[in-house]
């Protein structure tokens, strides 16, 4: 998909990095998409002093990791699994964003084609 060129290939449909998706999330799916669920409440995150930028869908793994760090303080190697879980979750989150980007791009290209044909 052209990692080196980044979002350059989406310039022709005026789509850039960190844009919001504009289409209905169900468009083009034969099944109902599963909703992302937040496994931890905002109040808990606030009481744990997790900064707002980290209060994403992976925050419960971050919370586990921080609890582990607190419990094992100098022996941080014991938290390797918690950290791994958190990093994996963030990576999957990123992949999801990339998929959303590609979906948005293809839908815009399709829209252009339909408008041109009509």
């Amino acid at each position: 998909m052209g990692q080196m060129m980044g979002s350059y290939g989406a310039r022709n449909v005026d789509l850039y990095m960190d844009d919001e998706p504009t289409f209905n999330p169900q468009t083009g799916f034969s099944f109902n998409r599963k909703e992302r669920e937040m496994k931890i409440s905002e109040a808990e995150l606030m009481s744990a002093k997790i900064p707002p930028v980290y209060r994403d869908y992976c925050a419960h793994y971050l919370m586990d990791y921080q609890v582990c760090r607190y419990k094992n303080m100098p022996m941080l190697y014991r938290c390797a699994h918690e950290k791994h879980n958190y990093m994996n979750c963030e990576q999957q989150d990123y992949v999801l964003r990339m998929k959303e980007f590609e979906r948005e791009r293809r839908l815009r290209v399709r829209e252009q084609r339909l408008v041109g044909a009509a």
């Binding site: 980044g6 998409r33 599963k34 990123y94 980007f101």
Partner: peptide, 25 residues
């Protein structure tokens, strides 16, 4: 006029509307 970034949409946060996975319910 030739700016580009990484091919990702904006970061999804729970309080910021409903977000979906690419798997069926």
């Amino acid at each position: 006029d030739y700016k580009f970034g990484r091919p990702v949409t904006c970061k999804q946060y729970p309080g910021n509307g409903t977000h979906y996975l690419f798997t069926p319910k």
